[in-house]
Design a protein around this nucleic acid. Sequence first.
DNA 1: TTATATCTCAGACTATAGACTGAGAGCATA
DNA 2: TATGCTCTCAGTCTATAGTCTGAGATATAA
Lengths: 211, 211
Amino acid sequence: MSQIRLVIVDDHDVVRKGIKTYLMTEDEIDVVGEASSGHEGADLVLKEKPDVVLMDLIMDNGTGIEATERIVEQLPDCKVIILTSYYDDEKVFPALEAGAFSYMLKTSSADEIAEAVKKAANGENVIEPKVAGKMMTRMRAPEKQLHEDLTQRELEVLICIGNGLTNAEISEKLFIGIKTVKTHVSHVLHKLEVQDRTQAAVYAHQKGLMK
Amino acid sequence: MSQIRLVIVDDHDVVRKGIKTYLMTEDEIDVVGEASSGHEGADLVLKEKPDVVLMDLIMDNGTGIEATERIVEQLPDCKVIILTSYYDDEKVFPALEAGAFSYMLKTSSADEIAEAVKKAANGENVIEPKVAGKMMTRMRAPEKQLHEDLTQRELEVLICIGNGLTNAEISEKLFIGIKTVKTHVSHVLHKLEVQDRTQAAVYAHQKGLMK
DNA sequence: TTATATCTCAGACTATAGACTGAGAGCATA
DNA sequence: TATGCTCTCAGTCTATAGTCTGAGATATAA
């Protein structure tokens, strides 16, 4: 195999420079571009068509998730490696579903990241142990997200509850009767397996449903 | 002025390596140590007594805030520069109150960070524009956090509400009568300027009071 | 000592939330 | 056509939440 063409997308200047500097000591890897936002990154990748992309998740302009989706859709052979600080469910699974090839944490050593790039180019996935653990538990118990059972309307009601609205206020906001609101609320409480609206509000916030 | 002795504390290997690599091209700066956690970092700094410290905020073992407090207390002449990804109120102000000398974001360029290190050694504070903006607004309108008015007990009750507990449950948990709980809840609602416990729970979550 | 703040609790009352049953209308699918 | 799901709403009932007033105990500061 010849040179591995790599693009780095990260809004942290020091991270880009750090990775680039280190990877320059690796003969097989050739950094052909850098970008500091999701939009810019996706554009650059679609133009440069690199073998591998190192992608941050949280960026000012266009998230790494969206960028990854675009890239994977347009260039199925391009391997996107997520490189981020986060390993909570809200970040990991959307990223993997978006088509990320590997998932590394910024706490990884530079060596490990270089290794992950080479393996990606070679078709091998690398998943950080912490992230791998999450995947395992999800595999074992498909950990159904309770709110997946909510209907569209029920989800709207839940969001209202999460914003602290009373039934009367929800009734006005959604242009439905207060009785109907109560029905929806009851269904929401049952489906989320909670006892009252306060717990439902907590659920909505903890699961990141509030925008 | 002779060499500036610098310690880097960050649990991200790539960040440490990136900064170090770049700063090695700066003659005036000498990186005399690295650490990957708050505890380790504070220990190292107290031993090495550097002129300047670059400190991450969010780390696995001991936060940058605690480390900064220890360092500033023991070595008042040591300048701690916060270097992090966050610029929300919950992070910025505690860091500044802990005695941070400058506050930089990881989105800053390597040049800017090098510049901040030199200025710190020279006694000049550098505050990222985004962070500076927050400081200005806080100066203008001291932006009182409503929950600052809560008494200790009321805060405990609020946390319980934020966890979705009913008055009866709070009563059991705190070993007080349900009437007393109601009194506290009423006071909490008034002080937070909200109408019911659900809104109070939302407040607690949005203000980051939940652990 | 007086004043102030906190924590505790009671009684009485009103408002809201939530459970349960039942039901009609619309829509999609087998 | 029959079945099932969703959204809508009514009536009834109970439980919980929340307000307001008042008050005793303790601790601390002026």
